[in-house]
Simulated scan of single mutants.
Amino acid sequence: MARISAIVSTLLLLFAVTAVVATSVEHENQSSSAGLFWSTAKEGGDLVHKSGDATATADDIDGGFSSLDGMLQWAIGHSDPAKLKEKAQDVKRLSPSELRQRQLEIKELMEKLKMPSDAQLMQIALDDLSNSSLSLEDRHRALQELLILVEPIDNANDMCKLGGLGVITRELDHSDSDVRKLSAWILGKASQNNPYVQKQVLEIGALATLMKMVNSSSADEATKAFYAVSALIRNNVGGQQLFFMEAGDKMLQDILSNPSVDIRLRRKAVFLVGDLAECQLENTDKAEMLFFSNSLLLKSVVDLTASGDLDLQEKALVAIKNLLQLKTTEAMVFEEFCRLGEALERMKKQLEEDHREYAIDVESLRKEVELAFQAKLENGRAVPT
Rank of each mutant, 00 (worst) to 15 (best):
V8S: 05
S9W: 09
F15C: 13
T18E: 15
T18Q: 15
A19V: 04
V21R: 09
T23Y: 12
E26H: 07
E28V: 05
N29L: 03
G35P: 15
W38Q: 00
S39F: 02
G44V: 08
G45H: 08
H49W: 06
G52P: 14
T57G: 14
D60P: 01
D62T: 06
L68S: 03
D69Q: 04
M71G: 07
E86Q: 12
K87E: 08
L94Q: 14
P96Q: 09
P96S: 10
L99S: 09
L99Y: 07
R102N: 13
Q103A: 01
K107Y: 13
E111G: 07
K114F: 03
P116Y: 00
M122F: 12
D128A: 07
S133R: 00
S135H: 07
L136Y: 07
H140E: 10
L146F: 06
A156T: 04
K161H: 02
G164T: 09
L165K: 12
L165W: 14
L165S: 10
L172G: 13
S175E: 12
D176G: 10
D176T: 09
D176N: 15
R180K: 14
L182C: 06
W185G: 14
Y196A: 14
Q198K: 10
Q200Y: 01
V201Q: 04
L202R: 02
E203W: 04
K212R: 12
V214H: 01
V214C: 04
S218W: 02
A219R: 08
T223I: 02
K224W: 00
K224Q: 14
F226V: 03
A231H: 00
R234F: 00
N235Q: 01
N235T: 04
V237K: 04
Q240N: 00
E246A: 07
G248I: 05
G248S: 07
D254I: 12
I255L: 09
S257E: 08
N258K: 10
P259N: 13
P259I: 05
R266L: 01
V273W: 03
D275G: 06
A277C: 07
T284G: 05
A287H: 06
A287P: 15
L290A: 14
F291D: 02
F292T: 00
L296K: 13
L298F: 12
K299Y: 05
V301E: 08
L304T: 00
A306R: 08
G308I: 00
L310Q: 10
L312K: 08
K315R: 05
K315H: 04
L317N: 01
I320V: 05
I320H: 06
Q325S: 12
L326Y: 10
A331D: 10
M332W: 12
V333E: 14
E335G: 07
K348Q: 15
Q350M: 15
L351Q: 03
E352R: 09
E357W: 11
E363W: 01
S364I: 12
A372R: 13
A375C: 08
A375V: 11
A382D: 11
T385R: 05
